[in-house]
C-alpha cells in the first residue's frame, strides 16, 4: 500500500519541519498567555506591599522541590530526543516515561500544597494574590498534565520506531512549561 504524506507536512519554506514550526507557534501564543498573567502580577505586586504578606504563606521548599523535579524531567526529555535521533527507540521510550514520572511528582507536590493552603483558609477568593496564585499555578499544572498525556500517547509510537520527530516537538513544549515555572517560582515563592 502506498503511503502519502499531506503536502503541508513536507513543505518547509522556513527550513523548519512543519511539526516543529507548529509547536513554536503554539508556544508563541503561550508566551502571551503566561506573559500576560506574569506582567499583570508584577504590576500589582510592585504596587501592593500587602501581597508580600500573602506570599509569605507559600511553601518555598515545595516550590524549590518542584523546580528540581521539572529541571530533571527536562533533562530526561532532552535525552529521549537524543536517543530518538540515534534510533534508540527503547531508550527514548524509557526516558519519555521518566519525564512523565517527573510530571506526576510535580502534580503530587502541587496537590499537597493546594490541600495545605486551602485548609488554612487561603482559597481562590481570599484575595487577589491568591486568585492569581491559583490561576497561574492551575493553568501551569494543566499544561503539565497535557504534556504528560501527549508524551504517553507518542511514547508507544516511538517504541515501534514511528514518528520519532514528535519526541523533539513534545520536548520543546515540555521545556517551555519548565521555563514558565522558572519564572513563577521566584514570583510566588521567593519574593516575600
Amino acid at each position: 500500500m502506498s503511503h502519502s504524506v499531506p503536502i503541508a507536512t513536507t513543505r518547509s519554506a522556513t527550513g523548519i519541519p512543519t511539526s516543529r514550526l507548529a509547536v513554536w507557534w503554539i508556544l508563541a501564543s503561550e508566551v502571551v498567555i503566561f506573559g500576560g498573567l506574569i506582567t499583570c502580577y508584577l504590576l500589582f505586586r510592585l504596587h501592593h506591599e500587602a501581597w508580600g504578606y500573602e506570599a509569605a504563606y507559600t511553601k518555598a521548599w515545595a516550590g524549590g522541590l518542584n523546580t528540581f523535579v521539572l529541571l530533571t524531567s527536562s533533562l530526561f526529555i532532552v535525552l529521549a530526543h537524543q536517543a530518538a535521533e540515534n534510533k534508540q527507540t527503547d531508550k527514548s521510550f524509557k526516558y519519555i516515561w521518566y519525564t512523565i514520572g517527573g510530571g506526576l511528582i510535580f502534580m503530587m507536590v502541587k496537590a499537597y500544597e493546594y490541600t495545605s493552603e486551602i485548609s488554612h483558609g487561603f482559597t481562590l477568593t481570599k484575595s487577589v494574590f491568591w486568585s492569581f496564585y491559583y490561576t497561574a499555578t492551575g493553568l501551569h499544572g494543566f499544561h503539565v498534565l497535557a504534556g504528560m498525556v501527549i508524551m504517553a500517547i507518542i511514547s508507544f509510537d516511538v517504541k515501534k520506531g514511528k514518528n520519532l520527530h514528535r519526541v523533539e516537538c513534545i520536548g520543546i513544549y515540555w521545556h517551555f512549561v519548565d521555563v514558565v515555572w522558572i519564572f513563577l517560582f521566584p514570583l510566588l515563592y521567593i519574593a516575600k
Binding site: 508566551v31 502571551v32 506582567t39
Partner: peptide, 29 residues
C-alpha cells in the same frame, strides 16, 4: 530560563524565524 531555551530547546541552533515569532510576542507583551 536562558540556559533551558538555548541548550535544551536548542534555540542556540534554531532558525531565525523562531526568533522573529518569539520576539513579536514579547513586543505584544
Amino acid at each position: 530560563a536562558g540556559m533551558v531555551c538555548a541548550y535544551f530547546m536548542h534555540m542556540n541552533i534554531e532558525k531565525k524565524y523562531v526568533w522573529y515569532i518569539l520576539t513579536a510576542t514579547l513586543l505584544l507583551l
